[in-house]
Design a protein around this nucleic acid. Structure first.
Length: 139
DNA sequence: GCCAACGTTGGC
DNA sequence: GCCAACGTTGGC
């Protein structure tokens, strides 16, 4: 099963906002980048992803689940832009910081490290396991 | 707050 | 189709 990572600036949309939506979830709208959109098109309902806080916090804070296939982004009429809906699954017992990720040689190849600007990205199974372990959280 | 990296736009 | 200019993101 593929794994993903969703990045957000918490003052715009954070884990607490996502959690408050419960199982209804929320669409991951506002993405205006083809690479990120293409990854969302590749997603399947039931896929899991990390929820990452960018900017000041810089840490993986929780696990989310994809609950819809890609569909038109409701915040635009431009049919190029699609997004999926996600819901919060569980928080990390300990958040895993970018510093920790950078310091771990198993995670050196992550897109998060290599291309800090991509807001939706795939995560390998090995990376998934390693980060969950660092966060003391069930994969 | 700054700036590097990156993606997009638009003129040619 | 190239590339300069511009805007945005996100780490530092």
């Amino acid at each position: 099963m593929p794994y993903w990572l969703f990045k957000s600036e918490p003052s715009t949309w954070g884990w607490d906002d996502q959690l408050a939506k419960g199982d209804v979830g929320e669409e991951w709208d506002g993405v205006r980048n083809y690479q990120a959109r293409n990854f969302m098109r590749d997603m399947t309902v039931g896929d899991l992803g990390f929820f990452y806080h960018s900017q000041k916090e810089r840490a993986v804070v929780g696990i989310v689940e994809v609950i819809t296939a890609a569909h038109l982004d409701s915040t635009t009429n431009d049919e190029r832009w699609e997004c999926v809906d996600i819901k919060a699954v569980r928080p990390f017992k300990k958040t895993v910081t970018l510093d920790q990720i950078k310091a771990d040689e198993r995670l050196a190849g992550m897109i998060l490290v290599r291309n800090s600007r991509l807001s939706v990205q795939p995560v390998t199974s090995d990376e998934w396991q390693a980060i969950c372990a660092l966060g003391n959280t069930k994969p």
